[in-house]
Design a protein around this nucleic acid. Structure first.
Lengths: 234, 234
DNA sequence: CGCACAGTGTAAACTACGCGGACAGGAATT
DNA sequence: AATTCCTGTCCGCGTAGTTTACACTGTGCG
């Protein structure tokens, strides 16, 4: 709960005219899905759980204080883990920050994917919606606010030392694009994705106008390229 | 995925007339929620993960063979864990079966809670819907089918040795009822819950008519009691 | 009938992970 | 200059999980 919009689920297919007796809206949960997809060996699941626990702990800590105020001991304690375990999993404070920022980026990409699904038929509208959503969310996200507000001690991880973040997020986004508009050339999608990620980071750290305005501008700017890449005009 | 109905989500509040530019339907995922609610210490999360991994492994194994065909080694292997770990977590094969059946029961109760939410205003309709949903799901659930079809070697765990299951499921259901209709007396809710659980097990193992028919009959039978318990007629 | 086979349950030693405490180094505070 | 706090690292310990092995039981097969 970060004071953000609601759930991503596209549309759970709501039946309208069913009488009271028959079931309405619910179903058996397929499976707790705690063990993720299917048969993931416990060992790797446990490792991932450890990392996630630490990341979540860090996120909680960062909602109140800035990155420089939060010590490794705080994070470890909040995760119910010893400080040494933290250091063993991630080598150093900076490495942890890297990994953390990376995962946060993933979080945004995931939500953007949801926005894309809503406009599968209209790539440009999808871009506008996704970018606008991203900006609006970023503006409210306590983590981002902390990263900017706090003496900016976390900024290097998304800028000067942000290469991994950009690369990872771009790859993720590129995959998302290609999955939805397969007719696009891989090269075009990659270029577009990286450019978008960089713009997103830029506008997130240095907001200009309103989220909707900025998103529209970006779409205006990149629209022609998208049209050509997706071959909608030939 | 057990060949069952779809998602429980009541209704994600769909805006109807929003123009293309603004965001539609999506939002930032609040948090991966892998580490459950909030700050659960890693240790307990890991333990739970282990149990869940084992349960899920068993469930997967049981989709193909019957309980007697599945060995402890199979389950352990499918979970990516040694046989001894399984024995340490649950003392014996029977204890594991107990715990497993218990958790499966929980799964059903959870889904029933979803159905209840859909008819918060009409307890009897909620009951009909929930019971009908349960029966329909149970009829399709591979686990239940296996429990009945397989030489019935798992039946004792829901009947003669099913006391823990009944008690646990009833308590869970009772809580669900009281949470939604607080005006009900605890005693009435408990009685109703236990009765319903027993009926559910009975009809699940020995189906009679169609799911909807049976659910209606149950509601017809228990309706007066519900009316009185919830004080809707005084 | 006896015998191998398969599965349960237990016990041992071994490994790996996470924990606690402690300590050197460095930066900021006083 | 002294103190304090945090980082990063070390070592010893306890526990969880692995591996191997071995009784015990029932079942099928020669």
């Amino acid at each position: 709960m970060s004071g953000l919009p609601s759930a991503p689920a596209p549309a759970p297919e709501r039946k309208t005219g069913s009488a009271p007796p028959p079931a309405r809206g619910a179903g058996i949960a397929p499976a707790p899905t705690r063990t993720a997809a299917a048969g993931r060996p416990y060992a790797v699941a446990a490792r991932e759980l450890l990392r996630d626990t630490l990341f979540d702990a860090a996120r909680r800590e960062l909602e109140h204080r800035g990155w420089s105020e939060v010590t490794m001991a705080d994070i470890a304690a909040a995760a119910g883990v010893s400080r040494q375990t933290l250091y063993k999993e991630f080598g150093s404070r900076d490495e942890f920050a890297q990994a953390f920022v990376l995962r946060e980026g993933d979080r945004f990409v995931r939500s953007v994917e949801g926005a894309l699904d809503a406009y599968r038929d209209d790539p440009k509208a999808a871009l506008t919606a996704a970018f606008g959503l991203f900006l609006a969310a970023a503006a409210e996200d306590p983590l981002i606010r902390a990263a900017i507000a706090g003496d900016g001690e976390m900024l290097p991880f998304v800028t000067t030392h942000g290469q991994p973040l950009v690369a990872h997020a771009a790859e993720r986004l590129c995959g998302a694009i290609l999955a939805r508009w397969p007719q696009a050339a891989a090269h075009d999608a990659a270029l577009l994705a990286e450019c978008l990620v960089r713009l997103a980071i830029s506008y997130a750290t240095l907001p200009l106008a309103s989220a909707g305005m900025t998103a529209s501008s970006i779409t205006e700017l990149l629209g022609p390229y998208i049209d050509r890449a997706l071959g909608l005009d030939c």
